[in-house]
Amino acid sequence: MLVGYARVSTEDQSLDVQLDALKAAGCEKVFSEKLSGTTMRRPQLVQALEFCREGDVLLVTRLDRFARSSVDLHIMVEQLMKKCVGFRCVEQGGIDTTTIHGELMLGVLGAVAQFETKLRSERQREGIEQAKRKGVYKGRRATIDPVAVRRLLDEGKKPVEVARELGCNRASVYRLAG
């Protein structure tokens, strides 16, 4: 049985292109979700991995929809291989663990995907540092009103009560109070 898994990072993104590609590839069952790929709390992915049985093949459209690090990729593929389940990428045809060449390609592309993720993070960090030096980047806007914090503390409320009332973290109240 061909089993599909589709994922986008945010709620406002569409799964349609991936779902169409997986159905066109012959998937009889498809699991999908709208969650960040960097989190391991992806219930539909867990269900897809558990659903697959010996002889099945799990299909994804691209590796980055399945895993963001080579460690995660290899752990999940190892899990599938222990169950005698294949793994294949629809848009990256060389990735097919049912062949020896596909296993090699999987390792190479997994490493490239992890490299790209780290490179993107590094560029973002460099951009933020440059913006800070120019005085453009000042961080995220405050979501807690310091005047409201001060007023509630002056009324005799404890920081825990202020945090609960304002819907923020207790540490934020302490930071603003100090």
Rank of each mutant, 00 (worst) to 15 (best):
T38H: 04
R41G: 06
Q44I: 06
L45Q: 06
V46P: 02
E50P: 02
F51N: 10
C52E: 03
E54M: 12
G55K: 05
V57Q: 01
L58H: 00
L58I: 05
L59C: 04
V60D: 01
R62H: 11
R65A: 00
R68C: 06
S69K: 13
V71T: 12
D72G: 03
D72Q: 14
M76D: 07
M76Y: 05
E78M: 00
E78K: 10
K82T: 03
K83N: 08
C84P: 00
C84V: 00
C84T: 02
V85R: 04
F87D: 09
F87P: 01
R88M: 01
R88F: 02
V90I: 14
E91S: 15
I95Y: 00
D96T: 05
T97W: 11
T98I: 08
G102C: 02
L104N: 02
L106N: 01
L106A: 00
G107N: 05
G110K: 11
V112G: 01
A113D: 12
Q114D: 14
Q114Y: 12
F115D: 14
E116P: 01
K118S: 07
L119V: 09
E122Y: 14
R123S: 11
Q124N: 09
I128L: 14
I128D: 12
Q130S: 11
Q130L: 14
Q130P: 07
A131S: 15
K134E: 14
K138G: 07
G139L: 12
G139D: 15
R140T: 01
R141A: 15
D145L: 13
P146F: 13
V149P: 04
L152R: 14
L153Y: 07
